[in-house]
Amino acid sequence: MEVIVLQVLNGLDKGSAYALIALGLTLIFGTLGVVNFAHGALFMIGAFCAVTLNRILSLSHEVIDPDKTDFLGNPLAVNVPYVYDWFGEAAGQGIINWSVPLALLFSIPIMIIVGIAMERGLIKHFYKRPHADQILVTFGLAIVLAEIIKYYYGANPIPTPAPPAFSGSFDFGALIGLENIIYPYWRIIYFSFAMIIIAAVFAFLQFTTFGMVVRAGMVDRETVGMLGINIDKRFTIMFAIAACVAGLAGVMYAPINSPDYNMGMHFLVLSFVVVVVGGMGSLPGAVLAGFLLGILESFASLGVVIDLLPGINQIIIYLVAIVVLLTRPRGLMGRKGVMEE
């Protein structure tokens, strides 16, 4: 029983990341009609916003410690962060420790700018081109963005820890009357954060005039345009919002797995499968499929399951995708007419 609860938790956690990325992918596809293969790169850029803020807050000056030597035998130059000088060592370290939550604020303007630049600078030129062209250009863009990050940050993962208050784990089992279910605080926070973001996006689309126009535009772009509404501008804003969702997901993911330049590519492929399984253009489908595939992937990783079906952990997501597409060709919640013209 404990194993099942643990793997459900793990699945929800994995599913959170898939769902957030798939949500952004679907928003962009639904509004702009573009299959954005660079969306994983936006997730990665979000994670690197956390890395960057951590580095900015850790900016330091050298103080020579004559009592110690460095690897060449010279007096050791100790890096003292400026925030230590300004706020004292304890408060300064506290600020650095909280760099990931602070990066949520730091990343929003960056992701909006990156999103608008990406849409206005490149993707808008491909609106009327075939999906294959869109996939090629956005995939190319994803590679370029990843290589730029690698050039400046290196190829190795960069540790970006959560605040010490949330970096440990707690006995989740005690909350539900089971034993020995230890689960990390940050993963619970990540799941809760994902739920809040997903709810906020749905509420925004459902309960605001802006959202209503966007939803109308997703159904019939031309008619909305003929009503005198600048739908292009709204769609650009939606692209920026989708970039923000991916970026925020990336920021919060940084303490779970140390960010590296390739993390976006890994999530992109899985998230694209999530979108297809959920149904192209369906926002609830993307979220549902994200959590579903996350949970299935977790169960497929169990030792007993692998012993029974060797290699199942590596193919489960694709296997499910094949089964779903064979039985429901439009995905779990796909609409008629999407990518069928």
């Binding site: 194993v3 793990n10 993963r187 169990l302 030792g303």
Partner: peptide
């Protein structure tokens, strides 16, 4: 996580 968590059990 899904490989590490079962170790606890």
């Amino acid at each position: 996580s899904s490989y590490v968590a079962p170790v606890l059990q």
